[in-house]
């Protein structure tokens, strides 16, 4: 029980990061391998706001999310849109975007190492006991989970209950047809990329309240987010949330019952199972 609750609490932030990535890949068609660096950058900003200006990380979200949105919109417009325009087919865009986001990954990581150094950092926020079913958990973890759940619910409402959200989903299914029904595909893609970046940044800011982070840990988070996205099915919100839960719980299980040194192996184990049995994702239809 302890494991399940800890796993679920952890999966909240995973879900946000993966939702960000699934929007970027599913709608904007950019496989953003620098996604983890966005998360780490948000950790640092939250840290800096809290220690430097004593701004509560939850309030910090109100600064971090819009900033991440704007920055990611800029990145998309300047660096990625030209690739979308010049790509002759899906395969070429995939290779180009992978290489370009590698570039962003290293550039961001390099800059963060330059500014913040390579050490591990953390800060103390709401480090109090909180009891669930008789076991104690860090209040910061619980708060982060609740905040993540609220943000994810907001995203769901946006995607399924608003006009702009429907446009986003239409582009994810078929950009050509979406264009035919007067959806501005280029603008929608940019919006989705920016929104994805903002979600990931929220995940990062929440993570920083209970997690020790450093400048070079982004890659591991990108990897986890990628596996969640594939497990859930690209562009699938429900799938991503469920997959995040599965990953969070199985990681916590392996770390606490078997060995903490094998968490990545557990992640990969799940990945291999998905590739072998459900490469189209949990809720995905068989490819035709």
């Amino acid at each position: 029980m302890n494991i399940i609750v800890t796993g679920i609490l952890l999966s909240g932030t995973y879900a946000l990061v993966a939702l960000g990535l699934t929007l970027q890949y599913g709608v904007a068609r950019i496989m953003n391998l620098g996604n983890g660096e966005t998360l780490v950058a948000a950790c640092f900003v939250a840290f800096w706001l809290y220690t430097g200006f004593s701004i509560n990380p939850l309030v910090g979200l109100l600064i971090i999310a819009p900033a991440a949105f704007a920055i990611n919109w800029g990145i998309y417009a300047v660096a990625l849109q030209p690739l979308v325009k010049r790509a002759k087919n899906r395969g070429q865009l995939e290779v180009d975007s992978i290489l370009a986001t590698f570039g962003l990954l290293f550039l961001m990581q390099g800059l963060m190492i330059l500014f913040f150094g390579g050490e591990y950092r953390s800060y103390t926020f709401l480090a109090e006991r909180f009891e669930i079913f008789g076991n104690a958990y860090g209040l910061n973890r619980v708060v982060a989970f609740v905040a993540a759940a609220i943000i994810a619910a907001g995203l769901w409402f946006f995607l399924y209950r608003t006009r702009q959200g429907t446009a986003l989903r239409a582009v994810a299914v078929d950009p050509t047809s979406a264009n035919l029904v007067a959806i501005d595909v280029a603008r929608t893609a940019a919006f989705a990329f920016a929104l994805g970046g903002a979600l990931t940044a929220c995940g990062g800011a929440l993570l920083s309240t209970f997690y020790t982070f450093n400048a070079s840990m982004g890659v591991v988070f990108t990897m986890k987010a990628l596996i969640i996205v594939i497990m859930g099915g690209v562009g699938d919100v429900r799938g991503a949330v469920l997959a995040a839960l599965i990953l969070g719980i199985s990681e916590t299980f392996v770390a606490s019952v078997i060995d903490p040194g094998l968490t990545l192996a557990a992640t990969y184990g799940l990945f291999i199972l998905v590739l072998l049995f459900r490469p189209q994702g949990i809720f995905g239809r068989a490819p035709t």
Partner: peptide, 12 residues
């Protein structure tokens, strides 16, 4: 890191 990042961008 920065050089590696710039190299990737240059290639693309």
């Amino acid at each position: 890191m920065i050089v590696v990042g710039l190299a990737f961008l240059a290639i693309v």
